Computed example of a mutant assay.
Amino acid sequence: MTNPYSATQWLQLSMQQQGLLQPFESLPALLQQLSYVQIDSINVVERAHHHVLHSRLPHYATSMLDQAMGDKSVFESWSHAAAYLPIEDYRFSLYRKQQLQQGDKHWFEPEHKVMREVKARITDEGPLNASQFKHDADVKNGAWWDWKPAKKALEQLFIQGELMVARRDKFQKVYDLTERVLPSHIDTTVPSDCEFAQHLIKRYLVAHGFGNLQQIQYLRKGLKPLLTKTLAQMCEQGDIASFTEPHTRQVYFYTRVYRCH
């Protein structure tokens, strides 16, 4: 297939799918469209993720994100980075969480004894943040690689799915047991390889309008063969279409999202 649209139409499509041409009615609807919003500590006027939401949602206020976390329409997880995601996508976060539970490494080696102690405190005391765990005052604390053992344990339990972020207090994560945070109606079936790959592809193409393999697999190690196979299958089935750009990369897209003229 040859390139079906002009550069202007591709730009219009990208802006349309990113919610920059027509405002959204609610924060959950916006997150459904974007797939996720990366959480960013950069704070110029306001933290970066709030800029993303403010530019797409009329009358946005930072309290709306706290409210969405409170009513459990969104949740925090690790996408390609720390992010807010629609709660309906929770089961797809289990794909990576299962791998981590089975021994895959995220940032550092799990300290299982500390993890058990940290989880036991949260089980008994309820939601806690990292500052509520004592540590050696002589241990350097700064960047994430200098985190105290309890903070590492909290993050490992979070990234594996045993804990969730219940809320944030002054941008600090407050952790609780997953079963006390996750709504009871949410599907917790771990997706198959095929289901997970299709989810990534569909989410990316709906959020951006089009993309290539390198973009879809961004910062997701080991998924290239699976995504390559799934993209080919989806093209054969007519779920998506593709064309080859001048630099020989296949560009994939959903024809049904086009409203360009």
Rank of each mutant, 00 (worst) to 15 (best):
D169Y: 06
K72W: 00
P58A: 01
R56K: 06
P110C: 03
V74T: 13
P225N: 03
R121M: 09
E245W: 08
S73M: 06
Y90N: 01
F24T: 03
I122R: 02
S41F: 11
V44S: 07
S26V: 04
L182S: 02
H208S: 08
D138H: 13
M234N: 03
V37Y: 01
F171M: 10
L57K: 00
T2I: 14
Y254K: 08
S192H: 08
R47H: 10
E46H: 11
I240A: 05
N43I: 00
H247K: 14
S55Q: 14
G103Q: 05
A120M: 09
G161N: 04
A120T: 11
A29E: 15
R167E: 14
Q215N: 14
E125G: 01
M234Y: 03
Q233S: 12
K224A: 12
V44W: 09
D89A: 15
S192D: 08
L182G: 04
S35I: 11
W144Q: 08
V44C: 04
Q215H: 12
H51Y: 08
K170C: 09
V37Q: 00
F92G: 02
G126A: 05
F24L: 13
Y175P: 02
Y204Q: 05
R180P: 09
P246G: 03
S35F: 12
Q99F: 02
E76A: 05
E25F: 12
L200G: 01
H185K: 10
H199I: 07
F243K: 04
T244Q: 10
E76C: 07
E111R: 08
G211W: 03
L182A: 05
V37H: 01
I186L: 06
P191S: 00
R47C: 08
I122S: 00
M164T: 02
S26D: 07
G222D: 05
Q16A: 14
L20Q: 12
H199L: 02
L31V: 10
F108H: 13
S77I: 05
W107L: 14
Q67L: 13
Q16G: 04
V114G: 00
G70A: 12
F75N: 02
K202V: 14
F92S: 01
Q250P: 04
M115N: 01
A150V: 08
A48I: 03
G211L: 06
L182M: 11
V139L: 14
M64S: 09
K151W: 04
K152M: 12
L13T: 15
S35R: 10
A83Y: 02
L227C: 05
M234R: 03
I159Y: 11
T189F: 07
N129I: 01
